[in-house]
Amino acid sequence: MTRSVVQRDTLRGAKLIGAVAVVVALVTLPAYGDQYTLTTFIRTIYFGFLALSVGFLLGQGGMISLTQTAFFGISGYVVGLLGAERGVPFPIPELAGLALVAVTAFLFGLIVMRTHGIVLLMLTLALGQICWSFARQNTSVLHGWAGIRGIQPPSVLGLDLTQNATFYWMSLVIFGLGLLLLWRLVESPFGLALNGIRESPRRMSALGYPVFWLRVTAFVIAALYAGVGGILAAWSSGIVTPTALQLSRTIWILLIVILGGARYFWGPVLGAVIAVWLDVIISQLTPRYNTVIGIVFVVVILVAPNGILGVWERISAKRRRFREVAENEHAEALSTAPKARRRLSRAEED
C-alpha cells in the first residue's frame, strides 16, 4: 500500500519533470533548431489553435463542427484586407477580425446549434463550404483564388516579429495563454455543463440549463480560438487564400483532433504536433499525401476511435489493474489488521 503511494508520487514527479523538460526544449528551440524547424513549429502552433477549436467542441461539447476553418480564414482575410491592403495600424485589423469571427459564429450558431450529431455535421459543413466558395468566387474584394498577399506581422512593444525566432516566442506565449484559458474554461461550471450536454442534452435541459445558449457560447469561444490561429497564420505566411478555408483542410484538422484523442485536453495539441510533422515527412516522400492521410484516418477510426491518448490510457489502465491485483494479494497475505488498512487507504485518497 505504502509502496503505491510512493509510486504515485514518483509518477507525478516524473510527469512534472517531463513537462518542465518539454517547456525548456520548446523555449530554447531557436538556439538549436534551424529556420525550417522553427517555421514548422510556428505552423504547429497556429494549426494547434485550430485543433483546439475543433477539439473543444468535439471533446467537451460532443459537437462535430466543420465550420472552424472558415473562422480561421475570416480573421486572416480581415487582417489582410485592413492591415496589408489599407494600412490600418495594429491592433485594429486583428480585433476587427476577431469581432467578425465572433459575430459570424454567433449567427451560424443560432442556425445550427438546435441540431445534434450528423445533422450538425452536415450543416456546419455546408456553412464552411459556403464561406469557402464565397472567398473563391468573390474577385472584387477578396481577389478570388489569388487571395491577399504581403501581410506583415506588426511590431509590438519594440519586438521585431519579422524575425522568425521572435515570432516563434510570441506564438508560443500566446499558445500557452490560450491553453491556460481553455484549461480554466474546461474546469469551470460552464465546461462541466458542456460535458453534461455532451452526455445528454435532454437531461441538461430538464435540469434547467439553457442548453441552446450554452452551445452557442461554446461555438463562439471555439470560433475565437480558430480566429486567433488564423491571425497567426496570416502573419506568419504573409498570405491568405481560399485554401485556408478549404474542406480538405477542415477534414485534416478533424483528423488531427481524432488522432490525438478528442476526449482529452491534450489530444488536439498532440495530434497537431504529430500531423504537422507527418505532413512534412509525407510530402517529401510522395505526392499522394491525401491518400496517406485518408488511410491513417480510416485506421484510427477502425482501430483507435479514442485516438493515441485513448490507446495510452487503455494500456496504462491495464498495467494499473495488473499492479493492483498483485498488491491486494500481497497486502492480504501480509496483514489482517483492517483498521490500519482503512487508515492507509484514507490517507491514500487524500
Partner: peptide, 21 residues
Amino acid sequence: DLSQTLLTIALSMIIADVALA
C-alpha cells in the same frame, strides 16, 4: 452513426486523391 460518417469522409479523401493521380 458518427464514426460511420467520419469513415466516409476519410474514404472521400482517398478516392479524390486517387482520381487526381
